Simulated scan of single mutants.
Amino acid sequence: MAEDAKDPYHLASLSRGLEVLDCFTRRPEWGLAELSQHLGQNKATVFRVLHTLEQAGWLSKDAAGHYALGLRFHALGAAAMRREQLRWQALPPLQDLAEATGETVHVGILHDNAAVTVQIVEGTHAVRMHSAVGKRSPVHASAMGKALLAYLPDAEVEAMLAATGMERFTPATLATPAALREALHQVRQQGHALDEEELVPGLRCVAAPITDHTGRPTAALAVSAPKDRMGAARVADLIPRVKGAAARISRMLGAPSIAA
């Protein structure tokens, strides 16, 4: 605790809340008195934490005054399970596509206004795109990001762009909402997205959406390569391969097929 007190970034109130939540990994229900005794803290402090968590939906309280994990935790757990399911069910199709094309293949989701890579298989070429799980890409300047944005409501896209801005990374970056709207319209019409050196000079990318069990696009698969291996003929060859792999993952997640 002494070290925490010296940490200028440490939030004592959040730490107390997490300490309370951790108790629910040991028992499914707690009363105020027994939880206060277990933690060695006074009832008033523990009650404030419990009340705050209950108001936010992280805990629920029954008529007898016993607290249990609330519905928000169930939703969070379900989201985490879907992400893990996506990561590992996507791996065999990614491996097959990387082997067939020799290029780096990755899957990403929208998180905190960015396209975040959750699974990747490196290509076999000596010169190739290098990435990593957890890498964040701007949604307006990446094929993966555009494949994810294309199926969102317009208001949600506009709110995201208002929060992130539209930084210009290369001369080819789409730097206006109007240009991006046109690109997203093309993605919906064609079923795939392209990155024409919009994020990194000399790097091109093809991406396609992945749908979940509801049929809603919630992830994207992308293949990236240097532009000297991504001429028009190569891109034309890759598009059905990328869409086919994305459709395969979608079927594994219980969704209807996406036309390749």
Results as ranks from 00 to 15, higher is better:
Glu196His: 14
Glu197Ile: 12
Glu197Ser: 15
Glu197Tyr: 12
Glu197Gln: 15
Glu197Asn: 14
Leu199Asn: 13
Leu199Glu: 10
Val200Gln: 15
Pro201Ala: 14
Pro201Glu: 15
Gly202Phe: 13
Cys205Pro: 05
Ala207Gly: 06
Ala208Arg: 06
Ala208Thr: 07
Pro209Ser: 11
Pro209Arg: 07
Pro209Glu: 10
Pro209Tyr: 08
Ile210Arg: 06
Ile210Cys: 02
Ile210Phe: 03
Asp212Ala: 11
Asp212Glu: 12
His213Met: 12
His213Cys: 09
Thr214Cys: 03
Gly215Ala: 04
Gly215Cys: 05
Arg216Tyr: 03
Pro217Gly: 01
Thr218Ala: 03
Thr218Arg: 06
Thr218Phe: 01
Ala219Tyr: 00
Ala220Val: 02
Ala220Met: 02
Ala220Gly: 00
Ala222Val: 00
Ala222Gly: 02
Val223Lys: 01
Ala225Trp: 02
Ala225Phe: 01
Ala225Cys: 07
Pro226His: 13
Asp228His: 15
Met230Ile: 11
Met230Ala: 10
Gly231Glu: 10
Ala232Arg: 13
Arg234Asp: 08
Arg234Met: 10
Arg234Gln: 15
Arg234Ala: 14
Val235Phe: 00
Val235Glu: 05
Val235Arg: 04
Ala236Tyr: 06
Ala236Phe: 04
Ala236Asp: 12
Ala236Val: 05
Asp237Asn: 11
Asp237Trp: 13
Leu238Cys: 08
Pro240Phe: 10
Arg241Ile: 03
Val242Trp: 01
Val242Asn: 02
Val242Cys: 04
Lys243Asp: 02
Gly244Glu: 12
Gly244Asn: 13
Ala245Asn: 08
Ala245Thr: 13
Ala245Asp: 07
Ala246Phe: 09
Ala247Val: 05
Ala247Ile: 08
Arg248Trp: 07
Arg248Ala: 14
Ile249Asn: 06
Arg251Phe: 05
